[in-house]
């Protein structure tokens, strides 16, 4: 049975379309990721799904409950962690947790099992005010608070934004464990590299879904051979490849450039020869598997052309 069913969902703000006729579904027990930059419509979508915002058109249901009509019942079943860590800065770690437990008519003890893994990491600081915690700790506390009423489905809106790489990694490990406990976890993130940590992902841009599938299947949709190219002078390499008439796309990726060619049939030596005539030195070239970011950019370009 699906946990989320969305049909033709649309949300506008004045003339801006934040969510553009989205249709998709998420199965129970999935770890599902919405991946896209700021302004893609992730937050609006999450707010509609958590009953906080009314859609302009289309329908959506979570746990078989309509997000508009059954909002009261739905609110008791879902957990939500908004974009900013919504904690009371002037309350201590323990007081925050106690408060959110009481709001949902439960106690910390009752559901301690569920949050134990996460809460033990911040328990030594339970008397500390939330305002004095580091980003990583706030994130853990906010997650504990969102879980304290044992929700069946958990929505996390950009939980890792502005958090450093280390804390991000730890956070995803926590989400994985929650999924193993049977909770449906729906996450949004602007970081493309987090896609591989989800069971399924939807790439979202300008209110539209560019692609929705497992990360592996998304990668398979990348239909051109991808080359990673490197040279002594990256800048000169970029200039040279931009001028190359067969160049289809060229994006820097760390120390490499990711290159695709317009031609169906070509050999790497042709490109190598061209670069040599352009006085590029120490050329290194290898075919590689595309990653999610490659796919995202390819899909963005396709969308722009349409």
């Amino acid at each position: 049975m699906p946990a989320i069913v969305v049909k033709n969902l649309t949300k506008k703000y004045g003339g801006v379309i934040a969510v553009n006729a989205l249709t998709f579904s998420v199965e129970k027990g999935e770890l599902f990721g919405f991946i896209g930059p700021d302004g893609a419509g992730k937050t609006s979508l999450f707010r509609i799904l958590t009953t906080l915002l009314l859609p302009d058109a289309g329908e959506a249901s979570v746990n078989n409950l309509d997000v508009v009509k059954d909002y009261k019942k739905l609110r008791t079943q879902l957990g939500y962690m908004p974009g900013r860590f919504s904690l009371y800065q002037d309350l201590s770690v323990e007081e925050n947790l106690k408060f959110f437990a009481s709001v949902f008519g439960t106690t910390i003890e009752e559901n301690y099992d569920l949050i134990k893994d996460i809460y033990v990491q911040i328990e030594p600081f339970k008397k500390r005010r939330a305002g004095q915690l580091s980003g990583g700790m706030k994130q853990k506390l906010a997650l504990s608070c969102a879980l304290i009423h044992k929700p069946e489905i958990l929505f996390l809106d950009e939980p890792t934004t502005g958090v450093d790489a280390v804390s991000r990694k730890e956070f995803w490990e926590m989400l994985k464990r929650l999924q193993q406990k049977g909770i449906t976890v729906v996450v949004s993130t602007p970081y493309m590299d987090e896609a591989s940590l989800c069971g399924r992902i939807a790439l979202i841009q300008n209110g539209k879904i560019l692609g929705i599938d497992t990360p592996n299947n998304i990668v398979k949709t990348f239909d051109k051979p991808l080359l990673a190219v490197k040279a002594r002078n990256t800048h000169a390499l970029i200039e040279a490849l931009r001028k190359y008439p067969h160049m289809h796309s060229l994006y820097p990726f760390g120390e490499f450039l990711h290159y695709t060619d317009k031609r169906v049939q070509f050999s790497n030596d042709e490109i190598h020869d061209y670069l040599t005539t352009e006085m590029i030195q120490q050329i290194e070239m290898k075919p590689i598997e595309p990653n999610i970011e490659d796919c995202f950019m390819a899909l963005m370009e396709k969308q722009d052309h349409e």
Partner: peptide, 24 residues
């Protein structure tokens, strides 16, 4: 200070082009 936070991947790269240009 974190100039590209939350920006889409294509724009992020265009932004770095601006940085290279300034640097050159």
């Amino acid at each position: 200070d974190e100039p590209t936070g939350g920006v889409d991947p294509i724009t992020r790269r265009q932004f770095w082009n601006l940085i290279y240009e300034a640097s050159s």
